[in-house]
Design a protein around this nucleic acid. Structure first.
Lengths: 241, 241
DNA sequence: AGTACACGACCGAACGTTCGGACGGGCAGG
DNA sequence: CCTGCCCGTCCGAACGTTCGGTCGTGTACT
């Protein structure tokens, strides 16, 4: 049971179109990957056949194998791209120097940014279940990422900036559960910018959604900088898929 | 590429074992479903073959078709179970009468409870992508659930109990992103009770994780009852899958 | 001529599903 | 008590289809 797919939606756009043949711009591994990941996210990796990819790309199954070694390689390339961005972010100075609570804020904001920048790739990463070698390797790296963030949260508690009545690991999981859920509904056209979204996440995660008796207090409560308030653009999108 | 599955783990336990034959307790649709959903969650629905289910149940492929009409029926039964519990919760008096902020608290706590009670079924529900009719129907009902919760959040903002600088829809999505992430790592044996977990979710969502200058203040800030604090049991589990 | 890209035909394996039949506990007639 | 049938349960062997992947060839550009 396949859901209909448009044939030859559009030619490879990104990543320096290489040679050309029969008037069509040739695929690069990257431009092919972009189409494939889109399909994987729509129907699921296992639910997407190479035939489906052929329809989505406008070339035949066999032609796809000219660019990539296997279906699994497409998956590996995709999750690598997401993971590389996430780990690169962890190694930036603001994420590993300074007060832990500030490092955490940077990690949260940057994670949202990466999620939005690399939406399809991160989406695919978050749905990996461990069926193949590539998937198990991705899961391992995700756990490593989780561990590093947990360490920052733990440190921020020790430094007295975060409340001490929550378990760091649990907090990290809930926090990133919130952040990661973005892939379920974010649409670049309808939703606000990544920065606005990151603001909303920070507000909810750090200050909670309960209204304080003295409005505006939370902003000056500590020296922390809050971006100038302002609600995000409301949208009438699909809430679940 | 299949991940190994134990053969005939245990006979049908729940739901009144029916007749017996060949010394084995016979499967009921429910007990079969339990095994199938477990497999679906491990390998994904599309990634699980009927052969896999045969191994997991200890009976043959063809025998499975004695109990259910098709593979998709197993999926439909599973997601229905989860959705029915969620909607039943929304219709309980505490979820539809009284102050909106209190209703929201009930919805959040009950959702965590349902998630934990029906963990495998909700897990499967949350991974549905819309490939089949059953999946599309599930997505529709999820959206309806989301809409109803959003309405409560909006109302709570209007009643002045929640801060008004966040979009209700966005907040609902982030909130349930946090709650739903529970299915990614919750393990009944290792993690605390559902109530403890719900407490942690409520604390994080309503009061945020930033430490206040006057500790304990948030508890008395409003008349809201907070359960006696206390951190959740830390655990060393898998962080991603 | 050489290279890059794409094609249609094809492969063995695995897929979900069907089918006729076999096993064996429960129950009616003796 | 025993006998014999019934039916719920399960099985092995196939069905037609689709899977991921291969192969030899054609063609356009350098």
């Amino acid at each position: 049971m396949r859901v209909g797919g448009a044939r030859r939606v559009d030619a490879p756009t990104a990543a320096a179109p290489r040679h050309r043949s029969r008037g069509r711009v040739a695929y690069t591994p990257q431009s092919l990957l972009a189409v494939a990941v889109e399909a994987f996210n729509q129907r699921g990796y296992d639910g997407t056949s190479m035939e489906d990819l052929a329809h989505a790309t406008g070339i035949t199954k066999s032609s796809i194998y000219h660019h990539v070694r296997s279906k699994e390689e497409l998956l590996r390339l995709a999750v690598s791209r997401a993971l590389d961005r996430l780990f690169a972010m962890l190694e930036q100075p603001p994420a590993c120097t300074g007060r832990a609570v500030d490092r955490l804020e940077h990690v949260v904001r940057s994670s949202v940014q990466v999620l939005v920048d690399e939406l399809p790739y991160v989406t695919l990463l978050l749905r990996v279940r461990g069926n193949t070698d590539a998937e198990r390797w991705a899961l391992q790296r995700r756990r490593e990422f989780d561990r590093q963030v947990s360490a920052i949260v733990r440190r921020a508690v020790e430094e007295g900036d975060l409340r001490d009545d929550v378990d760091p690991r649990l907090t990290t999981r809930l926090l990133f559960g919130m952040i990661n859920s973005v892939v379920e509904w974010y649409e670049p056209s309808r939703t606000g910018s990544a920065t606005d979204l990151a603001d909303a996440v920070m507000r909810l995660a750090f200050d909670g959604l309960r209204r304080r008796d003295t409005p505006g207090m939370t902003a000056e409560l500590r020296g922390q900088s809050r971006s100038p308030g302002g609600r995000l653009v409301p949208d009438e999108g699909n809430g679940a898929g």
